[in-house]
């Protein structure tokens, strides 16, 4: 009985762990927090009281607030990166069948013509990965390309490409590596396109 509940608990944890607020909503909430700082309200309440101590306290509080918001933004960004990486890893593990089999990125870009960005060959080290094919999928609730690759050891790897909207472009990492579910997930961006590569841990 207890063992079964343990498995059930793990399932519940996994289920809720996969539920994430959308990046847009997170950004909106962070902005909402920033736009309603308690210091502003405090100063309004005190009106014309501008003694040195009060000014110093207000400056100190503002600095703390700014540092706090910076930390909050970093935490939110880190969480978002983890969420994207989990989706990348999860989709990779599903190993869905490719809809378009090709070894040429131009052919694949043509086959996946409904994408809202230009699918491109990533700047991998030469011959590090061989293209096998691709299909449509979604990452972070937007249309994406799922691209099947094979590394030099013959292992299957999956690359995801999706358009980085204006609001998230700055928050998507230039290069970040995380380990999710025993996989290595790399996130980076090229020309406004978000890249996510899931590969086995060597």
């Amino acid at each position: 009985m207890a063992e079964n509940f343990d498995r059930l608990d793990q399932g519940i944890g996994r289920f809720y762990g996969s539920k994430n607020m959308s990046a847009d909503m997170l950004t909106h909430l962070v902005e909402q927090v920033e736009n309603s700082s308690p210091e502003e309200k405090t100063l309004e309440l005190h009106g014309k009281r501008t003694s040195g101590g009060l000014v110093l306290a207000a400056v100190a509080a503002t600095v703390c607030l700014l540092v706090g918001f910076q930390l909050l933004q970093i935490m939110v960004s880190n969480q978002w990166h983890k969420d994207i990486s989990r989706q990348v890893a999860k989709n990779h593990l599903k190993a869905l069948e490719m809809e378009h089999r090709t070894g040429d990125y131009s052919d694949l870009a043509q086959a996946l013509g409904k994408l809202d960005f230009a699918l491109t060959e990533p700047q991998f080290e030469s011959d590090a990965y061989r293209l096998l094919g691709g299909r449509y999928c979604s990452i972070d609730q937007q249309i994406a390309a799922q691209i099947d690759l094979e590394n030099t050891s013959g292992e299957k790897c999956t690359l995801y490409q999706f358009k980085l909207q204006e609001g998230v472009l700055a928050r998507y990492p230039q290069h970040k590596v995380l380990e999710i579910d025993g996989l290595i997930v790399e996130l980076w961006q090229e020309n406004g396109v978000g890249m996510g590569l899931a590969r086995p841990r060597n």
Partner: peptide, 10 residues
């Protein structure tokens, strides 16, 4: 925030 969202989702 995400923990709050998951709680709200529950």
């Amino acid at each position: 925030m995400q923990r709050g969202f998951r709680y709200a989702y529950s």
